[in-house]
Simulated assay, not measured.
Amino acid sequence: MSVAIIAEDFAGMRAQASGLVERAGLDWHFHPVRIEGIWRRLPTRFCPAPLRATAPIDLPSSTGLLVSVGGTGGAVAAAVRKRTGLKLVQIQNPRMAAHHFDLIIANVHDAIAGPNIVSVRTALHGMTKAKLDLARARWHERLAVPGKALLSVLIGGANGRFSFGVDDANTLADRLIGIMGHAEVAVALTPSRRTDAEALAVLKARLASHPAWIWDGEGENPYHGILACADAIAVTTDSVSMISEAVATEAPVMIIDLPGRSRRISAFVQILAEADRVRPFTGEWAPWAVTALDDTGRGADEMIRRLAL
């Protein structure tokens, strides 16, 4: 049996679905949702015929389960479920009636409940202990600075709710330089595709004379290694996915506040803060003892149990 993942073609959505499916020990194939015409301007759940509004979704005969992500993916997958009779697992709040799905796995901060809903504290992902162990072995010599702890820094960017510009980059640089000046700490920093080029240039210039390594986008992506080798992690508040992957490690995680506001992300961070899994990034080097927090495995276990896979 294989699993059809149905979602908009965003890396974060694909990572959540593939992470869940792989934890369940299943193979998957991806079917991107590309809404066309006037329906691109309206929530897909209002579309009377979602399968006519998107590019064709053709499933191989081996498909035994559907997994959808987000509101648009959920609306299209619900139509596929109706057409095929296959069971459907929805990731994230679908913003439509729960009876369209056999199982919904949503974050606690989405504040939805029901007999077919499983609540998880973190976004689903594929960052397993085995992958982290492998990444640590591959990246330790490249990232380690003798005699210094490693602070890994994950930078996002503008997403419609938060921003990260030149002023924010200067503030972050001041704090990182302060940490490196007062403690035996080196920095490894990776931007995301959303990171503003001018803000990144500021970080590169300001940190150039310090024990800081910044990925330039060339060669092998160091993301897994930066997570695996960290003694502590600082991550910008704009990304639930990055924060979720960070807290799946055994390193304490500090949240870099950014200009902007999101009720959902604030609620998510608060849940992790109440478990003392994250703390605000203040520019002080003060790691604390933590344990890895990852609800992806529980989501996969519930999927297997409830759907008798």
Results as ranks from 00 to 15, higher is better:
1 M>K: 09
6 I>A: 09
8 E>D: 13
9 D>M: 02
10 F>V: 12
12 G>D: 08
14 R>V: 13
14 R>L: 12
18 S>R: 14
18 S>L: 06
19 G>L: 01
20 L>S: 07
21 V>A: 08
21 V>W: 01
22 E>I: 01
22 E>F: 00
23 R>F: 11
24 A>C: 09
25 G>W: 00
32 P>F: 00
36 E>P: 04
41 R>T: 12
44 T>I: 13
45 R>K: 13
46 F>H: 14
53 A>M: 08
53 A>E: 08
54 T>C: 15
56 P>S: 05
58 D>I: 11
61 S>C: 11
61 S>V: 11
64 G>F: 02
65 L>H: 04
66 L>R: 07
68 S>W: 00
72 T>W: 08
73 G>H: 04
74 G>Y: 04
75 A>L: 02
78 A>E: 11
78 A>V: 05
78 A>H: 10
83 R>M: 11
83 R>T: 11
86 L>E: 09
86 L>S: 07
88 L>R: 00
89 V>K: 01
90 Q>N: 10
92 Q>I: 04
94 P>C: 01
95 R>P: 06
100 H>F: 12
102 D>I: 00
103 L>T: 05
104 I>Q: 08
105 I>T: 01
106 A>R: 05
111 A>G: 10
111 A>R: 15
113 A>G: 10
117 I>G: 06
122 T>W: 00
124 L>H: 04
125 H>D: 05
127 M>Y: 13
127 M>V: 13
132 L>S: 06
134 L>S: 15
134 L>Q: 14
139 W>D: 11
140 H>N: 14
140 H>M: 12
145 V>E: 14
145 V>T: 14
148 K>M: 12
149 A>Y: 07
150 L>G: 06
154 L>H: 00
164 F>S: 05
169 A>Y: 03
174 D>H: 10
178 G>I: 02
178 G>R: 09
181 G>I: 02
182 H>M: 12
188 A>L: 06
189 L>R: 04
190 T>N: 13
192 S>Q: 09
197 A>I: 13
200 L>D: 08
207 L>R: 03
208 A>F: 11
210 H>K: 10
211 P>R: 00
217 G>F: 03
220 E>N: 06
222 P>C: 09
224 H>W: 15
227 L>D: 08
229 C>S: 04
236 T>Q: 08
237 T>H: 12
239 S>Y: 07
241 S>F: 03
242 M>K: 09
246 A>C: 07
250 E>Q: 13
251 A>D: 12
254 M>Q: 14
255 I>L: 09
257 D>Y: 08
262 S>V: 02
263 R>M: 13
265 I>L: 10
267 A>C: 06
269 V>L: 09
277 R>Y: 10
280 P>K: 07
283 G>Q: 09
285 W>R: 08
286 A>E: 15
289 A>R: 14
293 L>D: 13
298 R>F: 15
299 G>L: 00
299 G>S: 01
302 E>R: 02
303 M>W: 05
304 I>C: 13
304 I>W: 12
308 A>D: 14
308 A>C: 10
